[in-house]
């Protein structure tokens, strides 16, 4: 299956592009995606799958949009 990944802010360091598509095996979870991207600090990140807050053990679906960001703030 293919998932669409967007990296924001400091998370961009894990890829040379901030928007890209990844091919993963059917039934892959978010943890698999994070492994693939070699994201080490997995506690202090926020992930949205199709606009919904998601955690590592959640399964991905084909064509899912995955946003990965640091939970920063701002005015």
């Amino acid at each position: 299956m293919k998932v669409n990944v967007c990296l924001f802010g400091p998370m961009r360091k894990y890829r040379d592009k901030d928007k890209f598509q990844l091919e993963l095996e059917e039934g892959a979870t978010l943890a698999r995606l994070l492994d693939h991207l070699k994201i080490e600090d997995r506690i202090y990140i926020v992930i949205l799958i199709n606009g919904r807050r998601a955690y590592e053990d959640e399964p991905l679906s084909d064509d899912a949009e995955v946003l990965i960001m640091a939970p920063t703030g701002g005015g």
């Binding site: 924001f8 802010g9 949205l48 606009g51 807050r53 920063t72 005015g75």
Partner: peptide
């Protein structure tokens, strides 16, 4: 006053 977190910080 800018509302929300601004460009580059997805605000959800």
């Amino acid at each position: 006053q800018g509302c929300g977190l601004g460009k580059g910080l997805p605000d959800y």
